[in-house]
Computed example of a mutant assay.
Amino acid sequence: MGEHLTESLRPWLQKPASERIAHLQAPRWIGTQAARDAIDLLQAGLDRAPALRTRGVMLIGPYANGKSMIAERFAIMDRRRADAARNPRRVVLVQTREGSGLVNFYAGILAALEAPQIKARDTSAKADQLDRLLRQLKPRVMIFDEFHNCLRGRRRDIEAIFAVLRRFGRDYDLSPALVGELSIFDHVMLTAEMASRFQLAPVPRWSYDEAYLSLLDSLEAALPLAQASGLSDAPTAKLIFELSDGLIGETVAIVTTAAIAAVRSGAERISRECLRDLGYIPLSRRRQSLAREVLA
Rank of each mutant, 00 (worst) to 15 (best):
Glu293Thr: 09
Val203Ala: 06
Ala82Gln: 12
Thr32Glu: 11
Tyr172Lys: 06
Gln129Met: 08
Ile60Trp: 04
Gly249Gln: 05
Asp209Cys: 09
Glu72Ser: 15
Val141Glu: 03
Leu24Val: 10
Leu231Tyr: 12
Arg73Lys: 11
Ala107Val: 05
Gly230Asn: 11
Gln288Lys: 13
Arg73Asp: 09
Glu19Lys: 02
Gly2Met: 01
Arg135Thr: 03
Arg81Thr: 14
Leu41Tyr: 07
Ala85Trp: 02
Arg269His: 13
Lys15Asn: 10
Gln43Leu: 09
Leu216Asp: 02
Asp128Ile: 14
Ser8Asp: 09
Arg264Cys: 11
Asp157Cys: 00
Ile60Ala: 12
Glu7His: 03
Met142Phe: 04
Gly153Val: 00
Ile39Val: 13
Ala261Met: 06
Gln43Asp: 07
Ile76Thr: 14
Ser18Glu: 13
Arg81Tyr: 04
Ala64Thr: 06
Ser207Asn: 11
Thr256Met: 11
Gln95Pro: 07
Ala296Pro: 00
Leu42Val: 10
Leu151Phe: 00
Gly180Arg: 00
Arg28Asp: 01
Ala112Asp: 13
Arg264Glu: 12
Ala82His: 05
Cys274Phe: 00
Tyr172Met: 11
Met142Trp: 07
Ala82Lys: 10
Ser265Gly: 13
Ile184Pro: 01
Gly266Val: 06
Arg79Cys: 00
Leu290Met: 12
Met1Cys: 02
Leu130Cys: 04
Trp29Asn: 04
Arg79Thr: 09
Asn65Tyr: 04
Ile184Arg: 04
Asp209Leu: 13
Glu19Gln: 09
His23Phe: 15
Leu216Lys: 10
Leu9Ser: 01
Lys15Ser: 12
Leu225Glu: 08
Leu215Pro: 06
Arg97Gln: 15
Ala107Leu: 11
Arg36Gln: 10
Ile60Gln: 00
Pro88Cys: 11
Glu293Arg: 14
Arg292Thr: 14
Ala228Cys: 14
Tyr106Arg: 00
Glu210Phe: 12
Tyr63Lys: 05
Leu200Thr: 07
Thr251Val: 12
Gly246Thr: 04
Leu13Thr: 01
Pro224Trp: 12
Tyr212Ala: 13
Ala262Phe: 08
Leu225Phe: 03
Leu215Gln: 12
Ala253Ile: 01
Tyr63Ser: 15
Leu231Asp: 09
Glu3Val: 00
Leu219Thr: 04
Leu113Pro: 12
Ile240Val: 15
Glu268Leu: 05
Ala201Asn: 02
Gly169Lys: 11
Leu24Glu: 05
Gly249Pro: 00
Gly153Ser: 02
Ile30Pro: 04
Pro139Tyr: 08
Phe198Val: 07
